[in-house]
Write a protein that binds this DNA or RNA. Sequence first.
DNA 1: AATACGGGGCA
DNA 2: TGCCCAGTATT
Length: 348
Amino acid sequence: MRDPIPAPAFRESLLGWYAGARRPLPWRTQPSLYRTVVSEFMCQQTQVATVLPYFAEWMEQFPDFASLAAAEEATVLRAWEGLGYYSRARNLHRLAKAVAAMDAPPATAAEWRALPGIGPYTAAAIASIVFGEAVPVIDGNVIRVLARLTADATPFPTAQKAQRHFERLARDLLDAHAPGEYNQAMMELGATVCVKHRPACLLCPVRTHCLAGQSGRAADFPVVPRRAQEKVEQVRLWIEEDGALLLARGGANGRLQSLYELPLRETLPQAVVGELLFSGKRAITHHLYTEHIHRAKAPAELTENPALSWVPHEELESIPLSGPHRRWVRALLKETADGRAERDPFPS
DNA sequence: AATACGGGGCA
DNA sequence: TGCCCAGTATT
């Protein structure tokens, strides 16, 4: 058994570094409960740099719980469009309605945990950052930092296993007097210094406590077995009629729920499929989709599929589409309006 | 306990 | 191209 990390010295080094190194993120420079909640939802599985423009636009459109609660779901999804993991947007919308209906928002991690879209990480983040509750957050950054501090080569096939593995250590190291600052400092360290590739160990404020860093092997931790990507080919249909485009809305349980996309060929078995207009790639978790968009003609009688609907051109910008389909629809719309120009509508 | 869920960024 | 990112809900 190795010597435990001396928690007081560790906290002092970490918090001293964080005070001078923290990025001036908008939810830090102008903090509030609502802004913290929105930032945590947006940052789930999404890099901060990607979140920033969405966060700014979101705050313009939905400045507080009440305005978000009052919005239509389609409007909410449209604002989230391009961020991915759209269940986050639907859950955040439901959460806003729940909070708006309360006398006062919850103030403990356990209460927040019961709200939609709030798991162990987000409950701990909100409770510690906003309400000063002494609960540690264990996200991807923290797992990486702790695995390197202890040079722990345990393989973690899932993040859940890693969270359980490090729960005790995370609690022991947490600064109970400044849990919000401490938690953000750990994540900031993982995001800016203790990064996955080529960590900056020479600049690390806790390098004297780090077993992996001192032996020059930080990049070897944590050990995460990888999963192969599966390739899938799909044909989607471009069907225009009377200035409207035929789109399909995501199913009740499937992915891209309540977002619109170009309909799959299987959705319209009777359609007459014509020329190939465009092929594009998109990744969804461990699937790599290649989608081939063909011009097509609708069958004389449309199937009674309630997920299908004709969307007039002028309404396309106000409905939620998936990110790739937004780009493809815009380009193809311009292309067909130009009478099918010769040039490539999708310059790389 | 495993699996599904998006899309962008980077080496 | 493959891997990662301030995770959660569902089966």
